[in-house]
């Protein structure tokens, strides 16, 4: 099954060409040009991974990362940015970013990271389900 990816960047031209190339590699890609738009899309749809720029109009990438991770902890977020200081990278990883790639990035490398992110998301979802079952069994004295 193909990976479903939400691509977030304020450069429309970049969004168009990246989604074209990712779709050609079998991925299902939706795009958002701001973190606010991405947040709204996440309310309605589920994705295997988000590929997101750090610096965009409106909500800043770190804030967006915090918001997404609070609402959907299973979601894997790959940061794709032209601006990656060590401090920002460490901060992003601490908040829960799956990975960080610098622009311009190698698409094959990004595709491999997206595949890996999907596998990790499935593991987290499995663990969440297992915990829920354990909780139910515990409550019913099982």
């Amino acid at each position: 099954m193909s990976e479903k990816v939400l691509l977030v960047d304020d450069e429309k031209e970049f969004l168009d060409i990246m989604s074209e190339r990712m779709q050609a590699r079998g991925m299902t890609v939706k795009t958002a040009d701001s973190a606010d738009q991405a947040m709204a899309m996440l309310e309605k749809e589920s994705f295997d991974a988000i590929v997101m720029d750090f610096k965009m109009p409106g909500m800043d990438g770190i804030q967006a990362l915090k918001n997404i991770k609070t609402k959907k902890p299973e979601l894997q977020i790959i940061l794709l940015t032209g601006y990656a200081t060590v401090e920002k990278t460490v901060e992003a990883m601490k908040i829960g970013a799956t990975d960080l790639l610098e622009k311009p990035a190698d698409l094959e490398k990004l595709a491999a990271k997206i595949k890996q992110a999907k596998a990790e998301k499935m593991l987290v979802v499995e663990k969440q389900t297992e915990d829920k079952i354990k909780d139910i069994l515990k409550r019913f004295g099982g």
Partner: peptide
């Protein structure tokens, strides 16, 4: 300088993807 270099990296990323798209077309 930080803002300018960030902007330039964005433009480089677009050029990079367009070059990649040409490569994709050749392979196809």
């Amino acid at each position: 300088s930080a803002t300018m270099t960030h902007d330039m990296k964005n433009v480089l990323a677009i050029i990079n993807e367009n070059a990649g798209l040409l490569g994709d077309l050749a392979v196809k």
